[in-house]
Design a protein around this nucleic acid. Structure first.
Length: 419
DNA sequence: ATTCCACCGGAATTGGGGGGAA
DNA sequence: TTCCCCCCAATTCCGGTGGAAT
């Protein structure tokens, strides 16, 4: 703040600044005047709610009819929605619940719908935080830490008692939370109705994992999946229609060269029929076209977009890893350069060497082993446990990153540790 | 059919940092 | 201030285990 004030007031060498400012100004105004390929970029993001939702009529009706009893003050059955990423689960849930809410308001029915994404880091990714978030949504603030979980649970209960009517709790990405903290909280949630008088709670769980029920206690399973809706992936044709619809809103006319939409849908269809991916591809392709001052989005931009999305994803995940994870990754990158595949033990001894050089005390092998499997799950490296018979079992670690991504990561880590 | 390596991976625990409430 | 809580990385302990070698 201080420095910016100094900068604008500085009286001397003003000529330099003026011209600099002028440059910047003209650059900004150029930017403003330049014909954008985008008409409304929001329409190309996943949280945009299109007025027409394609290829999901059946699911919408299905969910609507399950939740409808709430308008009569009856508690709807608990629902479980399954489907892999980008199949429209969240979109449909938000759509149906907001319509439901509107009708409830018109009819003056007591209905409260709470939507929480359980994967939100530091927000709803533990039992405590989920309950705290639920309280908050029901209008009862709870400190973000400090209290015993029981206490938060009590406050949540009180908040519910003050609601009256039906409360629908939508828990998105619930599989991630259960895998992390177990299913006990769900058991409590499903049984909460037994103790409530005026309020009725029903739960709408959304899971990316189709085999998720296996992680749950059978009692929880049966009460939670009174109703189930399964979302199957979109095929390439459906994806194309969805993109067609969105791009009409998102891009200016004729901004897309023929075949660009098909290309995006085909690529996304290959990757499990993921509509989110398709949208990301075409949006980023547009951004790249715009950045290189072109007025049309071409197929080459889609290729670049795919590379950029992957690079951003990897760089971002690596950046958010703890210190030692980065060091471990660095040693793996270094070793896998000449050796195709490396074993955990090799990585560990090399890792200890690095730690010595940069004056960091090394972690145990157990921990490093854990870090390696985390990096594997994050899709940064590949690791498979194999048996070398007489010579033990270990992970076979390999790196399958494009040269540019790899270089960028190595650079980032080197800068961080002055290697 | 056994042996036995070089780890894997679950579980329990710790320790330091977040923060209540009284 | 004291005592309690939660969170997360990390440690300690330890019971497995696939399959080449014997």
């Amino acid at each position: 703040m201080v420095s910016s004030r100094n900068f604008t007031v500085a009286p001397d060498n003003s000529s330099k600044e003026v011209s600099l400012k002028g440059d910047l100004k003209s650059r900004f105004s150029n930017y403003m005047e330049k014909d954008s390929v985008f008409e409304n970029k929001d329409a190309l993001t996943t949280n945009w709610r299109p007025e027409r939702i394609l290829h999901r009529d059946e699911k919408i009706n299905n969910l609507a009819s399950i939740l409808a009893p709430s308008l009569k003050g009856e508690d709807p059955s608990n629902v479980f929605i399954y489907g892999s990423v980008g199949t429209g689960k969240t979109l449909i849930t938000k759509h149906v619940t907001s319509e439901l809410q509107d009708v409830a308001e018109e009819q003056e029915v007591d209905l409260n719908i709470v939507y929480i994404n359980c994967k939100m880091k530091k927000v709803a990714d533990t039992e405590y935080r989920l309950l705290a978030k639920l309280c908050e949504q029901l209008g009862k603030e709870v400190p973000s830490t400090g209290l015993p979980t029981d206490e938060v649970y009590n406050r949540f209960f009180e908040a519910l008692q003050n609601q009256k009517g039906v409360v629908i709790i939508a828990l998105d990405e619930i599989d991630a939370l259960v895998k992390k903290v177990g299913d006990e909280f769900l058991y409590n949630l499903t049984r909460i109705n037994d103790d409530l008088r005026e309020t009725k709670v029903s739960i709408l769980g959304i899971s990316n994992d189709l085999n998720f029920t296996e992680y749950m206690d059978s009692r929880v399973k049966s009460s939670l999946s009174e109703e189930e809706i399964i979302f199957s992936p979109y095929n390439a044709i459906e994806l194309r229609e969805i993109l067609q619809e969105r791009t009409e809103r998102g891009f200016v006319e004729d901004a897309l060269v023929d075949g660009v939409i098909s290309k995006c849908s085909a690529l996304a269809a290959q990757e499990h029929g993921d509509a989110r991916r398709a949208l990301d591809l075409i949006r980023v392709a547009g951004e790249l076209a715009e950045r290189s001052s072109e007025e049309e989005v071409r197929k080459k931009h889609v290729d670049k977009a795919q590379e950029k999305i992957e690079r951003d994803r990897v760089v971002e995940t690596v950046e958010s890893q703890p210190k030692h994870s980065k060091i471990v990754l660095y040693t793996i990158l270094d070793m896998a350069e000449d050796d195709e595949e490396v074993a955990t033990g090799d990585v560990y001894s090399e890792y200890k060497q690095w730690c010595g050089e940069i004056d960091v005390s090394p972690l145990t092998q157990r921990r490093v082993s854990g870090l390696i499997s985390e990096l594997d799950m994050l899709g940064v490296i590949n690791a498979n446990v194999i048996s070398k018979g007489r010579y033990g079992r270990t992970r076979q670690i390999s790196v399958d990153l494009s040269e540019s991504i790899r270089a960028q990561i190595e650079n980032m880590i080197e800068n961080k540790f002055y290697i």
